[in-house]
Design a protein around this nucleic acid. Structure first.
Lengths: 229, 229
DNA sequence: CGGTTTAAGTGTTCAAACTACATTAATAAA
DNA sequence: TTTATTAATGTAGTTTGAACACTTAAACCG
């Protein structure tokens, strides 16, 4: 009978995390060299198994924390993958989550110990199981999120230049944006504070640094809007 | 150790389906009166458990078919719900799917036998477990989908009037739309065939019937676009 | 110290899309 | 034949988006 509990088959539930970071080279993901079988030595998303007394969100948070030392990170559930033989050892359904983190902000000791490494999304290695598919799916979702919510707070350093913000959006959307139109759209959102300070690394003239105005930013996060870039 | 298969806890995996239909009264969902414990006699989404040799998509298709007799229905995975005590009997993670069906098109014998019933989304009864939340989530997703893909084909009878299409969109978006602007936007998509035939039920003048132009419609489905209504 | 180099900063114009809005037309019923 | 009802249709004004180039500030170099 369809709805009887007794006949149901239990399965393993895994959580795999797509962790995005951004630096001067572009958009990156954090991958780990697997140190156990099967597929030992190959590159993989970081992941783990759901525990009996744990909800999926917390499993994702725990896994992220284990590998990066980070807490309080924005994560979003993406999709449940359930192909029969996606994991050759045992029937495992995997729920993917993605996270956005500041690439300079995690515990580098930890990721060294775990043989984790950042890869540009454009030249990441081939991954085990269905993890390539998960990454593609996450990139698509990140692009979508970019179109309805402001983004950047999570991926940029506290103080940043307009150029960095522009390049972040270009990396996410993988297309060139018009500098003037971009700046005026961002300004119209009124989510940035322009500082008096300039960044003198990037040019002789120097470019103004900005921070996010957290109140305005979170107000915009609550109400979806459309940002055509 | 984090990644050992042996220490992992297995769980039950359920699939719950939010089945949308549309008729002259508005947007509806199909609910079932549970005939087993716990919560016997209360209203619930239709659902079932994932089988060992089955992927989630197929479990959703199987469940939909069991209750409606329908095949080849558009379904989309929504979200995995994992609160510890969401099902009081046993730890169960539920993956929700939503489906769009033509309300006049299913096996009414079957749904009678299963004590299933259509409810307007505006006055559906309280549901068991976290099913209310699943429904709200599904409505939100349906609205989103409406903004990036044409919709209607799945929910309307083969021949329909502009008014019906308008009312479908109004029901999904739960806001009034300007008739003239709506019609010209829909026409600009070029996904409809205007028939010579008129529907004389709704008015003295009668209103033209339309069908979907399947080729054009599926072309539009492939490329996301934005339809601001 | 004057000239050169580099990236930053800034507005306008044209085209397209969106919004708001009211009258005429066709038919059935009385 | 008149009346009542819903269908069908177009335009003007506004907003938004896209394309596009010159000036400015400061460091570096001779």
């Amino acid at each position: 009978m369809l709805n009887s509990y007794s006949s149901a088959d239990k399965v393993l539930l895994a959580v795999d995390c797509i962790i995005f970071g951004f630096d001067h080279e572009g958009l990156k993901i954090l991958l780990i060299k697997r140190d156990f079988e099967p597929e030992k030595g190959k590159w993989s998303l970081i992941g783990g198994f759901l525990k009996r007394d744990e909800i999926l969100d917390n499993a994702a948070i725990r896994i992220l924390h284990t590998y990066t030392g980070l807490n309080d990170i924005y994560m979003e559930q993406l999709y449940a993958y359930s192909e029969i033989d996606r994991d050759p050892v045992e029937r495992t359904i995997s729920v993917s989550y993605y996270a956005l983190i500041n690439i300079e902000n995690h515990n580098t000791e930890l990721i060294k110990n775990y043989h984790a490494q950042w890869f540009s999304i454009t030249d990441a290695p081939n991954l085990i199981f269905d993890h390539n598919q998960m990454v593609q799916h996450a990139i698509k979702r990140l692009r979508y999120r970019t179109s309805i919510k402001p983004i950047g707070f999570e991926l940029l350093p506290e103080k940043f230049t307009m150029r960095q913000l522009l390049e972040l959006y270009e990396a996410i959307l993988s297309k060139e944006l018009d500098k003037r139109n971009f700046i005026s759209k961002i300004n119209s959102l009124e989510i940035l504070n322009k500082l008096d300070e300039k960044d003198m690394q990037s040019s002789r003239k120097g470019s103004y640094l900005y921070t996010f105005n957290k109140e305005k930013y979170e107000e915009k996060l609550l109400n979806d809007f459309v940002l055509n870039l």
